[in-house]
C-alpha cells in the first residue's frame, strides 16, 4: 500500500482547501474554467505575472502539499499530457509573426512540459529527484507508477500529481483528436505519497495499452487483488462501463474534459473513503481508444 498523506486540487469544482471534495461535488460550471485560490498567497506578485495557468496551479498545489508535510519532498513527479499549451501557442505565434531578430525567451522557456516540475523545485528550493511524464490520457497513471517506485526505492515523501491547461485552440480539435465532447477544462491535483501508515492509500495502478475489453481488464485487475466488481464501493469513470457497480460517478461531468482528470477523480475517491463506511474505490480512465488507466484506492 502506498499511503496518501495529503492532497491538493485546483479544478472546476470548489476543491482547493476543501476537506471533503466528494460531498461538495456539483455539475461542471461552464462559466468558470477553475475555482482559483488567491495565487498571491503562494507566489510573489512579480513572478506570478509571468506564470501561465498550468504553472500557477501546479506550483500552488505543490506548495500547499508542502505546507501540510513536515519534511521536504524527496521526489517530485509530474504528469501532463499536453503541457504548457498557452506558452507553446504564444511562442509559436511570436516567432512566426515577428519581424524582429529579437524574441523574448520567456514563453519558450516556459513552454516545455518539465517547466511545471522545474517551477516546483525552484519554488521549494528542492534538489531531489524531479521527473516529468507525458503519456496522453495516462500521464497521471504513469506518474503514479514512478512515485510508487520511488517509495520502493526508500523515498519517504513523494510529491506526485498532474496538471493540464486548456486553450481555446483545442476546441478546433474536438472530438476527433481530443477525445470526447465534454467541455474542455483545466485542472491540477497533487498528492503526497508516504511510506508511513495513513488511513487511505493507493493499492495498485495499471497503465494498459492495446486493450480489447475494458470490462475484462477491470475484472483481471481486481482479481490480482482478490477482489470482484461487488467489492468496489465506488467507481469513478471517464466512460460508460458495462459492469454493474454499487455506485458510479462519471467524473468528466464534474471536471470537464482534460487528460489528467483521473487525478482529480483519485482525490474524490480518497475523500469518499474518508467520510463513508467503504473500503475500495476504483478509478477507471478510458478517455482514449484502446488505452486504460486503473487506480485502486483502499482504506489502510
Amino acid at each position: 500500500m502506498y499511503y496518501i498523506h495529503t492532497i491538493s486540487s485546483i479544478s472546476n469544482q470548489d476543491s482547493f482547501r476543501n476537506n471533503d471534495v466528494y460531498s461538495s461535488l456539483r455539475k461542471f460550471d461552464a462559466e468558470n474554467d477553475v475555482v482559483a485560490p488567491d495565487y498571491k498567497e503562494f507566489i510573489p506578485r512579480n513572478a506570478l505575472r509571468r506564470l501561465s495557468p498550468i504553472l500557477r496551479m501546479g506550483l500552488t498545489c505543490a506548495m500547499e502539499c508542502q505546507k501540510n508535510t513536515n519534511a521536504e519532498f524527496d521526489s517530485i513527479v509530474v504528469g501532463t499530457a499536453l503541457g504548457c499549451l498557452k506558452d507553446t501557442e504564444k511562442f509559436l505565434t511570436n516567432f512566426i509573426t515577428s519581424t524582429s531578430d529579437f524574441l523574448s525567451p520567456t514563453a519558450f522557456i516556459q513552454s516545455t512540459h518539465n517547466t511545471i516540475g522545474g517551477q516546483i523545485s525552484l519554488g521549494l528550493s528542492n534538489h531531489s529527484y524531479n521527473m516529468t511524464h507525458t503519456q496522453n490520457n495516462l500521464s497521471f497513471e504513469v506518474s503514479l507508477i514512478d512515485a510508487m517506485l520511488c517509495i520502493n526505492d526508500g523515498k519517504k515523501n513523494v510529491l506526485v500529481g498532474a496538471a493540464e491547461e486548456k486553450i481555446p485552440f483545442l476546441e478546433n480539435l474536438q472530438p476527433n483528436i481530443v477525445a470526447d465532447t465534454h467541455p474542455l477544462a483545466s485542472g491540477a491535483s497533487f498528492f503526497v505519497l508516504t511510506d508511513e501508515k495513513k488511513s487511505i492509500g493507493i493499492k495498485k495502478v495499471d497503465a494498459l495499452f492495446n486493450i480489447q475489453s475494458v470490462e475484462n481488464e477491470i475484472k483481471r485487475f481486481l482479481a490480482t487483488e482478490n477482489l470482484t466488481v461487488n467489492d468496489i464501493d465506488l467507481v469513478l469513470t471517464s466512460n460508460n462501463i458495462e459492469l454493474s457497480f454499487e455506485k458510479t460517478i462519471h467524473y468528466l461531468q464534474h471536471t470537464g474534459l482534460h487528460y489528467s482528470a483521473s487525478a482529480f477523480a483519485t482525490h474524490v475517491g480518497h475523500d469518499f473513503l474518508k467520510s463513508n463506511p467503504a473500503n475500495n474505490v476504483l478509478v477507471v480512465n478510458h478517455l482514449c481508444n484502446d488505452k486504460l488507466g486503473l487506480i485502486l484506492l483502499q482504506k489502510g
Binding site: G83, T112, N114, M131, T132, T134, Q135, V142, A207, F209
Partner: peptide, 8 residues
Amino acid sequence: FVNTISTA
C-alpha cells in the same frame, strides 16, 4: 507498457 519522459 508505453511511457514518455520529457525533461529537456
